[in-house]
Design a protein around this nucleic acid. Structure first.
Lengths: 207, 207
DNA sequence: CGTCTATTTGAATGTACTCAAAAGCGGTGG
DNA sequence: CCACCGCTTTTGAGTACATTCAAATAGACG
């Protein structure tokens, strides 16, 4: 059986460089603490990617094998219906995690495409690597328990707002709750997140 | 510091009875395995409650201190707006977990009330007890990581459907995905889950 | 500067809500 | 066992919200 100690043994290089310049570790260490060795272990199994505006890191219909963390930049996850209508499911800015979670976890075809809204630096974690991390560094179960717990709370609040508030109220809430996102995205994209047409959102704003 | 071993030492009674008759352990053991001692430990810190139809286990505006598991029966979590409109956020049938997660986790006033749709047997876990369980039985971090992961996936799918599908399509999806719930609830409650009026849902069904 | 896309505006149409009233249904007490 | 009560469901008319389509305007980008 693989153990964490074994990893250390198989890594012949002394650990010299602090990993704290990676936003991902500041993110993880909001909830758990990691040793330098653990950070080294994790980062050694990740890909750090620089992507351009409009570049896609996931294409609807394909299998999603990666979980992404946004070091810098911003992205958008959306579904394209048979009738050609885009529905934005989430935005991700610096310090957020993003993927098609259903596809990633259950290895089913993705309902979502994910594309960069601007040049981004992202860190990608492979599904199988993450499963191994859960074994080597069980604290990560706790970390992702907290991450998913918060994600669930956010989505449930979104569901409540989407069935109980008017479009105007939901737009206000969005602007209030996610000012960092509002700066980066077009009104058309916000409309597709709220589930209304861009024309209608425009007329709502006029008031 | 408290340890799991210490718990065993402080429990002077031999463990004689299997806990497998509790649905909650069958639920937990879908994802992790528990020893009889661990089950005994968990159940000793829970309350097993029998509640009547229409009885509320959480009142909107109050703090939610408990996480509930449904052994039998069914419940509904809903928000009542200032204008008197009810929005059903979730239903819970046998083998489901339910609470106002935001209130439970962040100790904020509940947005939701939770009430029984029929006589229920439920198991209640206190917030602080659960936090201790995470220490004693770290496997539970994994269990709830998976639970929240699935809850997040479900809610995200719901968000997508709510912004991309027509009311008719969403009704069909609901009936298809949750046949066990459809049996237990009124059409008015389904309407409040879909975010439409009962009158409109009635007219949609007629077609 | 020109092209492409986003945003605004308006008219016509369709979707969903409000309000009111009737019909259906389940539980309870006489 | 039946009659009544309260709640749910249905139905319909009138209104408000949101979409579609088309065209004009404004912005972003090479």
């Amino acid at each position: 059986m693989l153990t964490y100690t074994k990893f250390i043994q198989t890594n012949p290089f002394p650990i010299l460089v602090s990993m704290t310049h990676y936003q991902i570790f500041r993110n993880i260490q909001k909830h758990i603490s990691l040793t330098e060795a653990e950070k080294q272990h994790i980062i050694s199994q990740c890909d750090v990617l620089d992507i351009q505006k409009k570049q896609r890191i996931l294409e609807q219909g394909k299998l999603c094998k990666k979980l992404y963390f946004v070091e810098s930049g911003s992205l958008r996850a959306f579904n394209l219906s048979a009738e050609g209508k885009e529905s934005t499911i989430m935005f991700a800015v610096k310090d957020w995690w993003i993927t098609d979670m259903n596809s990633f976890v259950n290895q089913k075809p993705a309902l979502l495409s994910i594309e960069a809204l601007e040049p981004c630096q992202i860190i990608s974690l492979d599904f199988h690597v993450l499963e191994q991390h859960y074994q080597f560094i069980p604290k990560l179960e706790r970390f992702f328990r907290i991450i998913f717990q918060n994600a669930y709370i956010r989505e449930q609040l979104r569901a409540l707002q989407s069935i109980s508030l008017t479009t105007e109220e939901r737009y206000r809430q969005f602007v209030e709750n996610y000012p960092a996102i509002v700066e980066k995205v077009t009104q058309k994209q916000i409309a597709s997140y709220l589930g209304v047409t861009p024309e209608f959102l425009s007329s709502v704003k006029k008031k």
